[in-house]
Amino acid sequence: MDDEPQLVQSAPALAAVSLDESATVFTCANVPYSSRMVRRPLRSGNRRRWVSSPGAEGEDGGKFAMGGVIHVCTGNQARSPMAERLMEEGLRHRYGRAAESIFVTSGGTQGPPGRPMQPFAIAELEHRGVPADHFVSQLLDLQAVARAHLVLTATRQHRDEIVAQVPQALPFTFTWRELAWLVTGLTPGEVPGRYAVERLANLPLVAKQRRGYLQPLPPDLFDIADPMGGTRQDYRVAADQIEEAVEAVLRVV
């Protein structure tokens, strides 16, 4: 079935613009839309697959985005913005220019849109040397969810709300800490794909297959509490938990 996750193969569906991964740019059939990064998605029915389009330019003048990770919390002002920026920074640190080919964004299930990131969240990012500028909150785009390769949420409630509205997102929607638990102990070589962007697309299927082999954790450990309205320490705890989960994911990508 088209909605079932399928392993991404290197060829012929995916082709690289350059053999040097540090300068490789890919394009993807299912690019999530974001009001902060306007991209023109490539479509191929309902099937999620990789395509290449060397030299194709997006509406913002850059290469088409590839991949698709959406971070989700309630208001898109604290937890999910921190996750978005931490993942972007982690990808840049590992892959340099190639990180630009992996689309990372975030959204809130309730809003309101158009708000800046919370000051304590900015402080936590800056404390880690991660840029926090030019961020504006946005509501979660459910069409983007349907096209994403990976949707990561703050809590099980967010995850369940998304899946209830977008059932086809079930195979690739996890909480941050849930996915980190599922992939801990894996190496990049155990996730199919020659390039990081391929491994990212294949990660949900690999994680799903590991679920029955791991010692279950108390369900509440999969959630990250909302620091909104709390102290600086509340934000620090949330940022530490998000950073730990994001790093666990990036280690296998």
Rank of each mutant, 00 (worst) to 15 (best):
D2Q: 04
D3L: 12
E4N: 10
L7T: 13
A15W: 00
A15G: 03
A16C: 04
V17H: 07
S18L: 11
L19T: 10
T24Y: 02
T24R: 15
V25A: 05
V25F: 06
F26V: 06
A29G: 12
A29P: 00
V31K: 11
V31H: 10
Y33F: 12
S34Y: 12
M37P: 06
V38R: 15
R40V: 14
R43P: 00
S44V: 04
N46G: 14
R48L: 06
R49E: 10
G55P: 03
G55N: 08
G58R: 11
G58V: 05
G58K: 10
D60S: 07
G62I: 06
F64Y: 15
M66G: 15
I70P: 05
I70W: 10
V72A: 04
G75F: 09
N76F: 03
N76R: 10
Q77L: 06
R79Q: 07
R79N: 11
M82H: 00
E84L: 14
L86F: 09
G96P: 05
T105Q: 14
G107K: 03
G108N: 12
Q110D: 08
P112E: 07
P112I: 09
G114N: 03
P116I: 00
P116W: 00
P116N: 04
M117W: 01
E124Q: 14
L125G: 01
E126F: 02
H127A: 15
V130T: 06
D133T: 11
D133R: 13
H134R: 09
F135E: 09
F135L: 15
F135Y: 15
V136F: 12
V136K: 15
S137T: 09
D141K: 10
L152W: 02
T153G: 01
A154M: 07
T155H: 04
R156F: 02
H158N: 13
D160T: 07
Q165M: 12
Q168S: 15
L170Y: 01
F174E: 00
R177M: 08
R177F: 05
A180D: 08
G185Y: 06
T187F: 03
P188I: 12
V191S: 06
V197M: 03
L200H: 07
L200S: 03
L200Y: 01
A201F: 02
A201Y: 03
L203C: 08
L205R: 11
A207Y: 00
Q209F: 01
R210T: 02
R211S: 05
G212I: 03
Y213H: 12
L214T: 08
Q215S: 02
P219K: 11
D220V: 09
D223H: 02
D226N: 08
M228L: 13
G230R: 02
R232Q: 07
R236E: 11
A239C: 04
D240R: 08
E243P: 01
L250P: 11
L250Y: 07
